[in-house]
Design a protein around this nucleic acid. Structure first.
Lengths: 280, 280
DNA sequence: CGCGGGCAAACTGTTGACAGACTGCACTTG
DNA sequence: CAAGTGCAGTCTGTCAACAGTTTGCCCGCG
């Protein structure tokens, strides 16, 4: 989704973006299917396509102004990526992540973050440290101003910077994918005022350990930070077992049925062939 | 790929596979595109499609007896999965993993294995311990018999069992994907006689730590084991920087060109439209 | 009144075909 | 003789159409 955001770690340099992605250049470079995939992914992450909702190829095609071919390819890619699940002759559904899986993803992210922090503790340059410290400072500023959205964005930047500088490209992509899956679970921003202070204190601890060159401490701090997020998430998540279709090729026993169960997919009881007229 | 294998941890029970996947049943359940994807993935992993090789949609289509549509969908999925890279109007190439990336994947696998071991140390049942110990015993047996292939397979089973029992389904799938990517690097089996003893000793250490319920020790042992594999891999890998196309949407600067560089793709100087007549 | 069978609609799966783009080669030209 | 240019071939990207299957509804029957 977030392909063209500033270098992810731009706390100091605005990076004027010399190579502006011309529309024509985009068309020449990216395939239509990849564009469609990007668009659908954005829709899913934005909530336009709710979790568990059915993806109608034809509707998506006309909505995006393309044929069904690219849409199918895009959906297939998203399926492999874990954002949607498909069943033959029935359709594709936006994957609904269960609570158990969300917690598992937290563990995965913790491990990845710890890995990046440990590596960063050994290889961090002065610029790296400065960038991270600047982000922490800006987050602290946002916290004082009680600007939750700003803090949220900076938090994302901080973690992205951690992974970008401490991990390789593969690690970074993996982290982003996991983050997307987690976003899928619930839209609600889980950043609350009283959490910001605790969260940023942990951030500072991570940076301090990295600056000290203590790989073990940095790793522990990074993991503890994500674990804290997991704990906060758990505490705010009253709804218990929310078992939806996890991932098609994985579920050993497919008791509840591949689609969002036999029960009606949409909470509103909307019939299958919903006659959505306009854009939404 | 390996959808219908026995429970991954079948060291004792041959598992007669009661639910035999009837061909008709397969056709009814899995989409043609997923079958094609499975087949192409198998080809890539088996080496039939060499790393860096170009994927001709038409040839693949006729070779698999389907049209180009499913092939395209499959390739798109594999692209998202990281096994192939595609450039518009030029084609898809089997991804060639650079040495740096292979090492990074080792780190990732180490983190994942450590995570699974740590969790397993706290939650392992008697059956889990027995299964793991049985696998270690069988590996020791294979080592004594100097049966490298058997050891190799059992080693895979051991690690799969570790992940299956210690991690959730997401973790398991991730580990498998990373393993596939690693397989992509080079075909050569990196299991050598003198390594088997060391390797299995580490296995035994992991199981012992798990049995003792020491999460930290189990995690350290698991990570050290993968790190040892990484080290062994590094020592046997004389070829230095082997920079191929890493991952299309990731590479920040695309200097060397998206395809396997401007230089001839095939080392043998094979012309682009290779006229491979038969099955290969 | 509940239930099973049958029917129709919609959607997905797949295929074939057409247009555009890139590659490589041969030819012309300075 | 080298470099640039034009051309043909092949392949990918995209689209439109056909067939098979599932789903939901309606009607007849017990």
């Amino acid at each position: 989704m977030e392909d063209e955001n500033p270098p992810v770690v731009a706390p100091t340099m605005p990076e004027p973006r010399l190579v502006e992605p011309t529309a024509l250049e985009i068309v020449r470079t990216r395939s239509l299917a990849s564009l469609v995939a990007q668009e659908i992914e954005a829709m899913i992450l934005a909530g336009t396509l709710a979790a568990g909702e059915r993806l109608n190829e034809q509707q998506l095609a006309v909505r995006l102004g393309v044929s069904r071919g690219p849409v199918r390819e895009a959906v297939r890619g998203l399926e492999r990526s874990g954002l949607v699940v498909s069943v033959r002759n029935q359709g594709s559904y936006v994957r609904s992540v269960s609570t158990a899986e969300a917690l598992e993803i937290y563990d995965l992210r913790a491990a990845l973050t710890g890995l990046a922090c440990a590596r960063l503790a050994g290889t961090a340059s002065a610029a790296d440290r400065a960038a991270l410290e600047a982000l922490v400072a800006r987050m602290d500023q946002a916290r004082r101003a009680d600007d939750a959205p700003a803090y949220y964005g900076l938090n994302l930047d901080f973690h992205a910077a951690l992974l970008a500088r401490g991990g390789g490209p593969r690690t970074r992509r993996l982290y982003e994918d996991l983050g997307n899956e987690l976003h899928l679970f619930r839209r609600r921003a889980l950043v609350e005022p009283e959490n910001m202070r605790e969260s940023n204190a942990e951030h500072a601890g991570i940076v301090a350990a990295i600056a000290a060159g203590d790989a073990a401490a940095a790793r522990a701090a990074g993991e503890a930070h994500i674990a804290g997020g997991k704990r906060r998430f758990q505490s705010t998540d009253a709804s218990a077992t929310h078992a939806g279709p996890t991932h098609a090729p994985d579920s050993a026993a497919r008791d509840p049925g591949p689609p969002p169960a036999k029960a009606p997919a949409a909470p509103g009881g909307r019939p299958r062939r919903a006659a959505r007229s306009a854009t939404n």
